[in-house]
């Protein structure tokens, strides 16, 4: 077993993991942060996306041991300090950017990264950035719309 220590959503977290334990399993099973989902187990769906040292990473693609000493952010750490939804989460709610909601944590984590580097992305840039995130409900239009709205742009041109 390997001892790991990391910062998760601003708080210190530690645990003992097997060499094969994936970061997503450590977050879900050891830290009980079940907002990060496992949608496919094969690094295709992006439902497990978290931020590792400020970069969006599929948490099923790295071992927990490799995330030792890292700064991790998950969907549980995205709300505003007063507990209200952050502006991207709020936009997903306002524009119905989810159906079953299973992929939403990953979508939000990717959107947060996108808007940090590109505060006013075009529709094409958003769709390109979401390339690694699959929505099994196929609710892509409203996800794109939510991210457009979160960036303060007009959404009327996006298909319903």
């Amino acid at each position: 077993m390997i001892n790991v220590k990391m910062t998760v959503n601003g708080k210190p977290a530690s645990g003992s993991v097997e060499g094969r334990t994936l970061l997503v399993d450590f977050l879900r099973n050891s830290l009980n942060l079940t907002g990060t989902h496992v949608g496919c187990d094969t690094s295709q769906c992006g439902a497990c996306t978290v931020h590792v040292n400020s970069k969006a990473v599929k948490a099923c693609t790295i071992f927990a041991a490799d995330a030792d000493k890292s700064d991790i952010k998950t969907i549980e750490g995205q709300a505003n300090k007063d507990g209200s939804l952050n502006f991207i989460q709020q936009a997903f709610q306002d524009y119905h950017g989810l159906q079953c909601g299973f992929c939403t944590p990953g979508m939000v984590m990717v959107a947060v990264e996108l808007l940090k580097s590109n505060p006013k992305p075009t529709e094409a840039e958003i769709r390109n950035y979401l390339d690694g995130n699959i929505c099994r409900c196929t609710g892509y239009h409203n996800i794109v719309k939510s991210i457009m709205a979160a960036s303060g742009q007009d959404v009327s041109a996006i298909a319903a």
Partner: peptide, 12 residues
């Protein structure tokens, strides 16, 4: 948030 409870999130 991330507080939704999908089947895989249940721990008994």
């Amino acid at each position: 948030m991330g507080l939704g409870q999908y089947t895989d999130d249940i721990s008994l």
